[in-house]
Amino acid sequence: MIDKFELKVQNLSKKIKKNEILKNISFNGKSGEVIGIVGSNGAGKSSLFKILSDLWNSDNGDILINGNDIKKMLYKDFYISALIENVNLYENLSGIDNIKIISQLYNIKDSGYIDYLVNSFKLVENINKKVSSYSLGMKQKLGLILTLIPAYDLLILDEPTNSLDIESVQVLHDIIKDLKTKNKLIIISSHILEELENICDRIFILSNGEISYEYNKYDNDYAYIVFDKEITKIMFENLIDLELLEIVSTNQVRIPSNLLNYLISNLDKLDLKIEKVSKNADLKYEFKKISGGANG
């Protein structure tokens, strides 16, 4: 286990037959950070996660931990736990037997943490029943418990809230926020943009196997202003250089943050009122612009 580390993904590429599913993927992350990956179906999210988890090999590129090849460190100094695509469980066994297998495999002796997870996800009443009798949501909860039990540095979660009820989604979010304080690096994908915005420090939009946009929660380079009525770009021509202004939606604009106060102080020249000002990027807008609005 490493107290603090930096992950560097450099120029990862992957082909299946003649189909290039990942193209020169590069990004970094560090312990104590939550990174989100979003993209339409077929964008390459699960393929990327399989390579990061050492389930697949890439054709090109490197994955480094503190400058060292991750393959040389795995299961010696650096540990990964991952939940990717479908949850694989021993369905002929009970939930508790599945937990015992993982606990023995990873030499986990902290029964208190296991009890906490089982109670938090409300599986207590069904933990002794065969997994084959579980609903999809219950199987997802058990899969999350099995993924969270091992000691790890990097946690990879591929759309982990699928089939979960609202209460369980909040439980998972709380756990992720706690893991962040313990210097874990969490990489997560989701169909729900608002979910990622709530828990992630940075979000990468994946499109056609490439990273097309990076969203940083703490990036204050732009201001997003929502007005009380529909707007057009030409309305602002006497106030601001129109090259610096972008219409985000029918009543929202994006401008450089250093122009925000100037624009606000001169709004009396326009018949407009401000309903909302945000310093964070409009992730929905960026995703729609890149993907055409298809979520996945």
Results as ranks from 00 to 15, higher is better:
3 D>L: 11
4 K>N: 14
4 K>E: 09
5 F>C: 10
5 F>N: 01
10 Q>L: 15
11 N>K: 14
12 L>M: 12
13 S>P: 03
14 K>P: 03
15 K>W: 04
19 N>K: 04
19 N>C: 00
20 E>P: 02
21 I>M: 10
28 N>R: 14
28 N>D: 14
31 S>C: 06
32 G>F: 00
35 I>K: 10
36 G>R: 09
37 I>F: 09
41 N>I: 10
53 S>N: 15
53 S>V: 11
54 D>C: 04
56 W>M: 15
56 W>E: 12
58 S>R: 13
58 S>Q: 15
59 D>V: 01
60 N>A: 12
61 G>Q: 05
62 D>P: 02
66 N>T: 12
67 G>S: 14
71 K>F: 11
75 Y>L: 10
78 F>L: 11
80 I>G: 05
80 I>Y: 11
81 S>A: 13
83 L>E: 10
83 L>M: 14
84 I>T: 03
89 L>V: 01
96 I>H: 00
103 S>Q: 13
104 Q>S: 15
104 Q>E: 07
105 L>N: 08
106 Y>A: 02
106 Y>P: 05
108 I>L: 03
109 K>C: 04
110 D>N: 15
118 V>R: 06
118 V>L: 12
119 N>V: 02
121 F>S: 02
123 L>Q: 07
128 N>W: 00
130 K>Y: 01
131 V>C: 02
132 S>P: 02
133 S>Q: 08
139 K>V: 02
140 Q>K: 07
140 Q>S: 07
146 L>C: 01
147 T>Q: 01
147 T>V: 04
149 I>N: 08
154 L>F: 12
157 L>C: 06
168 S>C: 08
169 V>Y: 09
170 Q>G: 00
171 V>A: 09
172 L>N: 14
176 I>E: 05
178 D>K: 15
178 D>G: 10
181 T>W: 04
183 N>E: 14
186 I>Y: 10
186 I>D: 06
187 I>V: 14
188 I>V: 15
193 L>H: 13
193 L>E: 03
194 E>C: 05
198 N>E: 14
199 I>C: 07
204 F>E: 08
207 S>M: 02
208 N>L: 12
208 N>V: 13
209 G>H: 04
209 G>R: 06
211 I>M: 04
211 I>L: 15
212 S>H: 13
213 Y>A: 07
215 Y>Q: 00
216 N>A: 01
219 D>S: 06
227 F>H: 15
227 F>V: 01
229 K>W: 04
231 I>G: 05
234 I>Y: 11
235 M>N: 05
236 F>H: 03
237 E>Y: 10
237 E>V: 12
242 L>R: 01
244 L>G: 08
244 L>N: 08
245 L>P: 02
246 E>K: 15
247 I>L: 12
248 V>D: 01
248 V>G: 01
251 N>L: 03
251 N>Y: 13
253 V>W: 07
254 R>H: 11
255 I>V: 08
261 N>E: 14
263 L>R: 07
264 I>C: 06
266 N>H: 13
267 L>G: 12
272 L>R: 11
273 K>T: 12
273 K>R: 14
274 I>G: 10
275 E>I: 10
276 K>L: 09
276 K>P: 07
278 S>P: 04
279 K>T: 00
281 A>M: 03
282 D>W: 03
287 F>M: 02
287 F>K: 02
288 K>T: 15
291 S>P: 06
292 G>R: 08
295 N>A: 10
296 G>L: 01
